[in-house]
Amino acid sequence: MRALPARRLASTALCALLLAGITGPAAVAADSAHERTHAMSQAPVPGADALLAQVKSLGNLGAVLKPVTDLLNTVLAADNGQLTPDQATQLGDAVKAAIAQVTAAAPAPAPTVPTTPALPSAPALPSVPALPSAVPSTPAVPAAFPVPAAAQAKGLGGAPAAKDLAGDALTALQTAVDNLLKAATSGDVSQVLPAATAVVTGLVNLLAAILLGGGLPAPNLPGLPSLPSLPAAPSLPASPPLPVPTT
């Protein structure tokens, strides 16, 4: 009768060993899989830097869009389009803070190409000895073809200087918002609608600047007309050939 408990103890110990042999490797494998999953979750998507920049530009648009549309909705729904000084200050400060935040986060524009320096005049050819009257005299060599002033203002080879379209659109939008706040506190309802229209136009200009100048992918919605491209810089005319003197 005393052998039975010892047999049970041995059986229990054997079961424990079997369970340890089964669950031990499984637990280690589960931990390794969890570590691999965690490591993979920390790895960035290859080649996503350019797309992240595009997403950021769209996020900047959303950051400005909300406070500006809040201002427009409040003004257009107000009695005669007029706001109290406190309302105007609160709404105007929200727009100003959003524009300042986007402007501070925007990358600096690319440096402009230096203007083309004026080309020196070609040296004059040495004088030719007197020839018979039938032979024409040697013509003077013309000066090098000058670069037009307009082309010099645009940069080397007539290429337009780098332009911060989004920055210009934000500046114009801030001016339009300031004008709308003045109209909404002036007591003159006739000034409200033109000022509000200018703000809407400023938002459209900002959207166009981001779409055309922010490197975003072209829209591909069926039936959507293509967006106009930015105008190309005019090319300089070719320099006239130098005349060859006759002997």
Rank of each mutant, 00 (worst) to 15 (best):
M1A: 05
A3I: 10
A3H: 14
R8I: 10
A13N: 11
L14G: 15
L17A: 14
A20H: 05
T23L: 15
A30C: 05
A30E: 13
D31H: 11
E35Y: 06
T37L: 13
A39R: 13
S41P: 07
P44I: 08
P46K: 09
D49G: 12
L52C: 04
A53S: 07
A53I: 03
Q54V: 10
Q54S: 12
Q54I: 06
K56A: 14
K56G: 07
S57N: 14
G59C: 05
N60P: 00
K66I: 09
L71H: 00
A77I: 06
A78D: 08
D79A: 10
T89R: 15
L91V: 02
L91G: 01
K96G: 05
A100Q: 11
A100G: 15
V102R: 06
T103F: 01
T103L: 01
A105N: 12
A106D: 07
P107C: 05
P109D: 06
T112K: 14
P114Y: 11
T115A: 15
A118P: 08
A118G: 11
L119N: 09
A124F: 03
S127W: 01
P132Y: 03
S133Y: 01
P136F: 05
P139F: 06
P139L: 07
A140R: 08
V147I: 15
V147K: 04
A150M: 04
A150W: 07
A153Q: 15
A161D: 03
A161L: 10
A161Y: 00
A162K: 09
D164C: 06
G167E: 09
A172Q: 12
A172R: 08
L173R: 01
Q174C: 00
Q174P: 01
T175S: 15
A176S: 15
N179V: 06
N179L: 10
A183T: 00
S186W: 06
S186L: 10
S190N: 12
P194V: 02
A196E: 12
A198F: 01
V200S: 14
L207A: 09
A208C: 00
A208G: 05
A209G: 06
I210S: 14
L211A: 13
G213Y: 06
G213D: 06
G214Q: 04
P217T: 02
A218R: 15
G223F: 08
L224F: 14
S226I: 09
S226E: 14
L230I: 10
A232S: 13
S235K: 15
P237L: 10
A238F: 05
P240I: 05
P243N: 03
T246P: 04
T247C: 01
